[in-house]
């Protein structure tokens, strides 16, 4: 049974967080949106929204991402978990909230096709973890991305690809953006099946899954700010 009562109601202690995290993870894996909401609401009454996003939600989603990587959970569970958390986090930490993480401008896009799932997962997981990022959608190409990046002063770009030729074309994008200082993180099937590919196309980093995306964004943010 899920325990919703932390031992100390006044502060989110480590032990309480562990209980919340394990309960939240279980609720998310079973796709129980109501239970997830109850757990987050309880936790929110004991800690700041940023703490809840970073220490509770983000770490639960990271653990779920890790389990997918190990083959013990499926992509649909990762996706729905992110979706549920994203919806909940917006109620306690709205997109325009000044307490959202101070970060360089970040965007995410699907490169050269319309298979949106990978992007949607990363978008949800990062937003639910307290990051704010612009969703550029699918079907972006070298020209359109260069224009948007310049116009919106994007500093970190996350690119999701499904097809090998699209992955290879990132090299051209990187060449066009030379000198702009932008950092590009790539992810998607071709990179999973060839772990040398991200280096070949000149990406700054490759994220295997949503869990790695959180770590990479955190690291690149520190370098970019």
């Amino acid at each position: 049974m899920i325990n919703l009562i932390p031992k100390n109601k006044n502060a989110v202690g480590m032990a309480d967080l562990e209980v919340f995290r394990s309960d939240l993870e279980r609720a998310l894996i079973s796709l129980d949106r109501d239970m997830a909401q109850q757990i987050i609401n309880k936790a929110a009454s004991t800690g700041s929204p940023v703490e809840i996003a970073g220490e509770l939600i983000s770490r639960s989603l990271k653990s779920i991402g890790d389990k997918w990587e190990k083959g013990t959970l499926s992509l649909s569970q990762v996706y729905i978990s992110g979706l549920i958390c994203e919806q909940i986090i917006d109620t306690i930490l709205p997109p325009s909230s000044p307490v959202r993480k101070n970060q360089p401008k970040m965007a995410i896009a699907v490169f050269e096709d319309y298979h949106l799932l990978g992007k949607r997962i990363i978008y949800s997981v990062l937003r639910a973890s307290g990051f704010e990022l612009i969703d550029l959608g699918g079907g972006q190409d070298v020209t359109s991305l260069c224009e948007i990046i310049e116009k919106k002063k994007i500093k970190i770009l996350l690119l999701s690809v499904l097809m090998l030729p699209s992955a290879l074309r990132i090299k051209k994008l990187k060449e066009k953006l030379a000198g702009s200082g932008i950092k590009i993180i790539v992810g998607g099937a071709p990179f999973r099946f060839d772990e040398e590919l991200w280096k070949e196309v000149g990406a700054d980093a490759y994220g295997k899954d949503s869990s790695e995306a959180i770590d990479l964004v955190t690291k690149l943010m520190a370098e970019t700010l």
């Binding site: 649909s76 996706y79 799932l117």
Partner: peptide, 15 residues
């Protein structure tokens, strides 16, 4: 349906 609806929408329909 991954192509008919998009993968994300399809998972939502499924569940």
């Amino acid at each position: 349906p991954v192509m008919q609806l998009g993968f994300d929408k399809y998972i939502e329909v499924m569940h």
